[in-house]
Design a protein around this nucleic acid. Structure first.
Lengths: 349, 349
DNA sequence: ACGCACCTGGAAAACGTATTCCAACACGAC
DNA sequence: GTCGTGTTGGAATACGTTTTCCAGGTGCGT
């Protein structure tokens, strides 16, 4: 029994090293290394190469990435920080970042900050120890939080030693950014809805500290003003499906809707809002319009299909990686345009 | 101009090392290391500790994880392989795995195999070089693919040197597994729908090679047989939203539905099916029932709310990590029960 | 035939950290 | 006062790889 236990653990022969491969092939480690990586300045006898390759194959050798990293100075790794991977907004961005990373032979790493600035800071600290080539931060930047400048400093320190930082949708002046035109999208949405006959709005936004939410909300308000519409009702709630549900529920508490449409600062909130409208006994689209932001997958599969401000999220992820790997372009900010997609959740009235 | 360029690149002072910290603090590297990690067997003078900590703070020192890894033998890393991070099925599992990893102070790594067995194999190879503490594979295992045994071998080799492998929802007898009771869920679903008065079904499944799909499909068929129902129509399509849409569209090509309900082997297919039903001029739930598998987020927010076989995906992710880190339990297979959630997409008839 | 350049293999150093081992020192006991 | 013991700092080594540096050998030109 004890023997078995010992055996089980003892069988960990320790992964084969380059040294083992070299011995098997009857050459030195230097030659083995050169044979496997094909050194650029040096050439090694073809026969040796095949002997080394065969030995590596036979032993199931895999180079120890950490050892390579320490010898070469950096890790073939790209780190992404998101708030919540289960949120389609972030998972779409993540999918773009990940495929782009893999296309560049980088190992993608995903950390989840759980919508906490403190956690985000801690993650970036840890990440820095990993010496990735790239750090992409796609969290929802919170303004004014004390940790904010600290995070900036941490990233700055990382950048100072050669790391590449890219922010997604949060204009920190200090780092390259993939900027989403949230305000513009909001303005367009206002104009589009007004021309479909909507007049009185409720806007469901998240805490004002959250940049993305504020920009979208303010953009919409600006668009409304430009169209000469009266000031809408602005309700502050959480940035999630449940936030949208609860706020809408409260809104409809007193009876039939007093607004023509409910506009939320992202699609998952809009989904919650639509359910709340139904639960209150009304029909979204007919009794009250609904619109969101993001155009997450199957927005169009909802009934009624959701009007929204489309953002090419997957592309945003890809662009973030390209920007990070790019050659320090003159223009370190990529502006991503947004476009309004009108669907049945906001029929003409 | 050129100077600026040079300056920009030249400013890469190379991250501060433990050596630098030690020098700043006026102690040896050994002492510095012990001061920062708190060696278990040794004690260091309190004054030195604070001096070292202060120096580290001042320099913005972060230990080089790769160097630690090579000194200690393994990396504080947990790798997850999924087919498609943008699919809510996988992103929910991923969220569980990631939070569990972070709870154990492991850096989560996510690779996307893009539903290709070849890519999956290549990823596991690369991963092996990273020497993570655990590898969790949540792809959709494809039976019979030639690469399959190769993948098993690769994982076996990894396990032989002390790595922990966990499979999610794909019973490979050779590794610990979080097994989802897909067949049981299918059987229950059949029984539940029959007792709501449904008789004639169409089943939308994916290629038979895909285990998850086959198990769900076969379980449903078995349940139908047990209830004495006639054999349903089985349509093979892709495992995605579009697959569900197209198959349903073809199904309804000839006019009104000839079946009471359409059952799909996952929720995203069901979502596509519901849209197809509407596009064909019918109403899901009223004209034809719809049911899926997974209970992905806001299944309940659809209209009609989707009947489905619920799987605690986030929990599955957490359990996979616990299983990987656990103490080689007697029972290396965790069976996750599933439960049918009846909603308005399958009203009684 | 001699010297020189070039090719190629191997020994050794380097990367940054953790740890083993050695030495110095302080303190208590006799 | 001397010896032993326990404590703690530092030098040296190990981890697995890449790369520099050195040396031996071959081929070429004169």
């Amino acid at each position: 029994m004890l023997v078995m236990e010992a055996g089980r653990r003892g069988k960990q022969k320790a992964a084969p090293t380059l040294h083992d491969v070299a011995r098997q092939a009857g050459v030195s480690v230097a030659t083995a290394s050169r044979a496997l990586n094909g050194s650029s300045t040096r050439t090694v006898r073809p026969e040796y190469i095949s002997r080394v390759v065969a030995a590596a194959e036979r032993l199931g050798y895999q180079p120890h990435l950490s050892a390579q990293a320490i010898a070469l100075g950096s890790t073939p790794t790209a780190a992404l920080v998101v708030s919540d991977i289960d949120d389609p907004y972030f998972s779409s961005i993540a999918s773009g970042v990940i495929v782009a990373a893999q296309a560049h032979a980088l190992i993608p790493t995903v950390a989840v900050a759980d919508r906490s600035p403190a956690r985000e800071l801690q993650i970036v600290r840890t990440l820095r120890g990993q010496r990735p080539r790239v750090i992409i931060v796609a969290g929802s930047r919170i303004d004014g939080a004390g940790t904010d400048t600290t995070l900036d400093d941490e990233l700055q320190a990382y950048q100072a030693v050669g790391g590449r930082v890219v922010m997604v949708s949060q204009e920190s002046l200090r780092f390259p950014t993939v900027a989403i035109d949230n305000a513009g999208g909001g303005r367009q949405l206002a104009s589009a809805l007004v021309s479909r006959g909507y007049r009185r709005f409720a806007v469901l936004s998240a805490a004002r500290k959250i940049r993305t939410s504020r920009d979208r909300c303010d953009g919409f308000l600006a668009g409304l003003r430009e169209a000469g519409m009266p000031e809408p009702l602005v309700v502050e709630t959480r940035f999630t499906r449940d936030g949208g549900y609860e706020a809408t529920r409260r809104l409809l508490d007193g009876g039939p809707p007093t607004v023509d449409a409910i506009v939320t600062v992202n699609d998952v909130m809009a989904i919650g809002a639509m359910t709340a409208i139904r639960d209150a006994g009304f029909t979204p689209g007919r009794d009250v319009g609904v619109a969101g932001f993001d155009d997450i997958s199957w927005c169009a599969d909802l009934d009624p299909a959701l009007t929204t401000v489309a953002i090419p999220l997957h592309q945003v992820g890809v662009m973030a990686m390209e920007l990070a790997l790019g050659d320090d372009p003159q223009q370190p900010v990529i502006r991503v345009p947004t476009s309004v997609i009108l669907r049945d959740s906001t029929p003409s009235r």
